[in-house]
Design a protein around this nucleic acid. Sequence first.
RNA 1: GCCGGGAUGGCGGAACUGGCAGACGCACCAGACUCAAAAUCUGGCGGUGGCAACACCGUGAGGGUUCGAGUCCCUCUCCCGGCACCA
Length: 864
Amino acid sequence: MAERSYDPAAVEKKWQQRWEENKVNEIDLGAATDPYYVLMMFPYPSAEGLHVGNVYAFTGADVHGRHQRLRGRDVFEPIGFDAFGIHSENFAMKVNRHPKELVPENVANFTRQLKMMGFMFDWRHMVDTTSPEYYKWTQWVFLQLYKAGFAYKDVKEVNFCPECGTVIADEQVLPEGTCERHPETAVQRRKMPCWFFRTTAFAERLERNLHWLDWSEKTKLAQLNWIGKSTGAEIRFAVAGKTESIPVFTTRPDTLFGATYMVLAPDHPLVDKIADPEKSEEIARYREETERRREEEEKGQAQEVVDSDKVNRADDTPPDTDKTGVDIGAHAVNPATGEEIPVYIADYVLMEYGTGAIMAVPAHDDRDFAFAKRFGLPIRPVFNPDIKAVEELQLTSGQQKDGLTPHQIRQSVLEGDLCWTGSGNAINSENDEVSLNDLPVEEAKQRIVRWLVEKKIGKAETTYRLRDWGISRQRYWGPPVPIVYDEEGNPYAVPEDQLPVTLPDVEDFRPKGDGRGPLANATEWLKATLPDGRPATRDTDVMDNFLDSAWYYLRYVSANDPDRPYDPELIRKWLPVDMYIGGNEHAVLHLLYTRFICLALTEAGALEMGERPEMKDRGEPFRKFRAHGLIVKDGAKMSKSKGNVVNPDEYVDVHGADTLRLYLMFLGPYLQGGDFRDKDIQGARRFLNRLHSWYFGSNQPVVPDEELPRPLRVKTHKTIRKVRGDIDQLAYNTAIAAIMELFNEARAAEALSDFLRETIVLCLAPFAPYFAEEIWREALGKPESIWTSGRYPEYREELTVEDEIEIAIQFNGKVRDRVTVAKDASREELERAALGSEKIRKNLGDRDPRKVVVVPGRLVNVIG
RNA sequence: GCCGGGAUGGCGGAACUGGCAGACGCACCAGACUCAAAAUCUGGCGGUGGCAACACCGUGAGGGUUCGAGUCCCUCUCCCGGCACCA
């Protein structure tokens, strides 16, 4: 075969065409016998085109999918476009064009680039969230949740720009706290009616399932953090002289005897009912102050972000002396002591969390302690600090607590001069009915909760930081909320057979000035009819972009089905997704909303995914999720302002997609990310060049595999094992290194075998799919595509070990010599070999070794 | 402040459950080819000393466990990410 040089452009163009002609990437979902669903986070098709970050993410997923395919599985690897939402809309406004025109252009460009990169997508399953055929079903999803009681309308605070006269999204608020379109106008917080999804109803399952899901740990951790589960108790405090009672949530019910006052959030509804009327002015003033302070704080934080890249937020935490609050002139009764205790409002208690009220135990809570000091409130210690814990605290944190010894610290706590939140035993905690004294924290908790339950004034309780998901956007570029209102303003679901509620083709999609979404101006479109014939008005909001992307992986299987969102049979067969790969920046929002939607649809009876043994909750959409790392350029983050954004087109033009893919997967551990360096991509290109000329021009004789020298065969089988294992773990960089090693040895070998030549190209194929096809067909002369006829080679266990191995001989832990021994040499043989070494004898002199450590297969360490 | 992740040659990065540190690649140096350069090929490439054999040092810093530590334990420094008055 004549040697010819590697021309990536020609190779890639040829196979891209032929694959399309021969439908190599098309899959029959119904007929597949061994389904494997590989999913990657679908992109928002920006005007700039595919970012190298997308390419990195997609390549990693594609390598995984192609590897599975070579191992004989029926791999479904779909793609789509997340083209609704604020990004598209903002960009459209900026360039003064309609998003409706821009999206198809961007999608076309993305499609070109995605095809160019050689991803194994079955384009027949492509979805576009902005097409009515898609968002019809997004609205359907809303209706399923609405019918099941998981969607409701409420009033919530949102960002409002007075200049635009409309609500804007968090993402549109500049760091300075001003509107991005009016940088000199401060954004206000206003209460607006919005639709909410009841994510909190699933808080427990969302939390619990994280403990067994096979997801990247850091992703699960971020979600756990966000969901913020905490267990404790709810306790009702009677208000002296009133019928009302104040429920509080606490994680430390065991400190109940030490509760010496209470605090309500300033906006707690009970405040007006129980406060001394004489205090109302003071309360009103405090509420205003709180509001103002919060706004300033938001701005201040924003300002710091502007001032410096690295803000030391530690300074932000308000010093303890900053605690503010107002005595509202009411008294509550501590149910354990029977004492009347004062009730305050203070901004350190938040209405959004727990019950919006706390029992304050200054002796054992830092914040309560600071507040009590400030307002001169009694501090009653009810736990005797565990002295070991005190010592340890000093040791680990290095803090000297004002230079006190552990015993002095304990003494201070007992005198109410220090706050102790660690372990210890209860004291001063006894009444006629219950005593916690001497009990450690956990036991005291159980004891007091039992008593509270008996007295019917409390119970064990779990709260979550997670809040319901507000999905209304007073915007244009999204799916309209499928709700209509009668003249009294009562909501009615749009009947499913009337979907989609089409986004009207308005000329001006910009927000007007009346505080409602642009849809409010589509006068004709607004008119609707109720099922009973009465006139109705449409909801003028569109739904959050995160809803579009919360169910797209379900639509992929039935992308073109006009009659239903998804085929239940295909869903049972293909879902949950086997492997989902994406960026960890979506750890909380997208991935959490997605899990919620799936759980809620399942609960609503609108979805039933297949059974998988390890999936303990049938409503979870992803069996595995892996967060890939981030890619930087020359050690710095890529950003438009720095002008160091890598455009994949440039590199594909010069080197081809295969080289770019190979390089991206080689530059660092996929799950950790890495550094893109222009010079280094040369290495990947050179490797392919060398391979190409070797496959087409090597004049090494080809012999039956058994006739190859054993070390080369061993290397081959070891490589197969390593590459397979590494790809399974997404350790792509080391897999590629192993292939390079094998190739380096093969190229230097006396002779080759067909098995060896096929092995190298099959191992490489997931990384460089076009290149591999070229070699497979043109150099190896195979009649069919590697992607339909290729099978990942099997390694033979007995061929992964050398007959003879080299082991190290150490003297006192330092390598002094090496000897070659049979692979299964006994301990005695090894010891003899070691002691026979001249170097060891020299080191040992005429002494006898004190000890000889033998590690079969590895080394011998002679201690002299 | 809390919770995660990290620190290994000139550079990106390897190293299974403690067992030959630096795989693979980039850069660099030398040689071959060339009128020359590029490309390609061959060899070298952690530091110090030595003609060499070899010796000593070396995985952010300091201590510890062990026959043996990049890997395990303790303390500290710095970098990256998330959360933050969450009761």
